[in-house]
């Protein structure tokens, strides 16, 4: 049964869904909502979340000693190892359950790992791949804000071409980053027996449904959440949802899932808007837009997005009812 907003509001009217107030993320940041949406779903379905965090904005801003903005068990270990860390926690759970040492054995435990794009696409990729390959029962959620934001907007493997960053700035000579964003969904879908999906807070019902699927999936799940950084994307504080909608409408962030090799687009868009609209809406592309080769760079991105969109439809068609295991 799909959750709706009214139900959740009724359930959480007087309690915190895992994450609490008093965190110090920037006003309007999307990251706390990614955590909130996921944990709210888990709790409303009767799960007790145990949370791991990779170093990054969500981690530093929620746990400045002696303040913690978590009301569920929480562990941060380092930047690149949240998946390995939660795999240890999840394994300990199985070991202690077997030996009768779980404090509250009747509860349904759900293990979550949250990492930024840096902690996921880049430095934490090995740890993530290992944990998923080993088949630990956990849900990994990358809140993708397309850069190392906690440390002041440095380039990551998730940064799109032309986006201003401090380690690959758009300069007088060089156009900044020209490489496309890594396709983390495909990388993760390349592991066996994994549920992989993209989500966005601008599509809450789709978000809840995918978390629900991930919780019920018999194996690890990887969820890529689009997570605008209002600060370094140079948009107004109230724009996280608007930008997310644009990302979906332009095909920049397609909403889909891959379950044991079966592709499904969960948000069909009749006609994609030009990606230029997405780019023009954000200050981080301002310098790109001033360059004489701007159209060329945006054109290449547009072509990639169009083809990827077509390809997704082909994959959906080709893999329909054909799980690889």
């Amino acid at each position: 049964m799909a959750l709706n907003i009214m139900q959740l509001a009724t359930m959480f009217a007087d309690k915190n869904p895992g994450i609490t107030q008093g965190h110090r993320l920037c006003p309007g940041c999307a990251a706390p909502n990614v955590a909130k949406f996921a944990l709210m779903t888990a709790e409303s379905l009767g799960y007790t979340p145990v949370v791991g965090l990779a170093t990054g904005c969500l981690e530093v801003s929620t746990t400045i000693f002696p303040y913690t903005a978590w009301n569920v068990p929480y562990i941060h270990n380092a930047f690149e190892n949240v998946a390995a860390t939660i795999s240890g926690v999840e394994t300990a759970y199985r070991a202690l359950a077997k030996r009768g040492r779980i404090v509250d054995p009747d509860k349904k435990y759900a293990f979550f790992a949250f990492g930024g794009d840096g902690g996921t696409y880049d430095i934490g990729l090995q740890s993530l791949s290992g944990a998923v390959e080993r088949g630990h029962k956990f849900i990994y959620i990358v809140y993708d804000n397309e850069g190392y934001m906690n440390t002041g907007n440095q380039r990551s493997g998730a940064t799109p071409p032309g986006s201003q960053t401090t380690t690959q700035p758009v300069g007088k000579k060089l156009p900044g980053k020209i490489q496309l964003k890594k396709n983390i969904v495909e990388i993760m879908a390349g592991h066996e027996n994994v549920y992989v999906a993209t989500v966005s807070t601008s599509e809450p019902m789709d978000f809840f449904k995918k978390i629900e699927k991930a919780l019920q999936f018999d194996g690890p799940a990887f969820i890529a959440a689009f997570s605008p950084c209002v600060r370094f994307w140079r948009v107004n504080d109230d724009k996280a949802v608007d930008i997310s909608k644009l990302a979906i409408e332009t095909g920049y962030w397609p909403l889909y899932e891959v379950e044991r090799g079966v592709y499904r687009i969960t948000k069909k868009v009749k006609e994609l808007k030009p990606v230029k609209e997405f780019i023009e809406a954000q200050g981080r592309f301002r310098n790109l837009l001033k360059r004489p080769d701007a159209d060329e760079i945006i054109g290449e991105l547009q072509e990639y997005i169009t083809r990827r969109w077509e390809r997704l439809h082909i994959l959906e068609e080709a893999t329909k009812d054909k799980p690889i295991r």
Binding site: T20, G22, T63, Y67, T68, A69, V72
Partner: peptide, 11 residues
């Protein structure tokens, strides 16, 4: 931090 939700004190 041996108690949950202590950040709620933080304004």
């Amino acid at each position: 931090i041996d108690k949950p939700s202590t950040a709620k004190e933080y304004q």
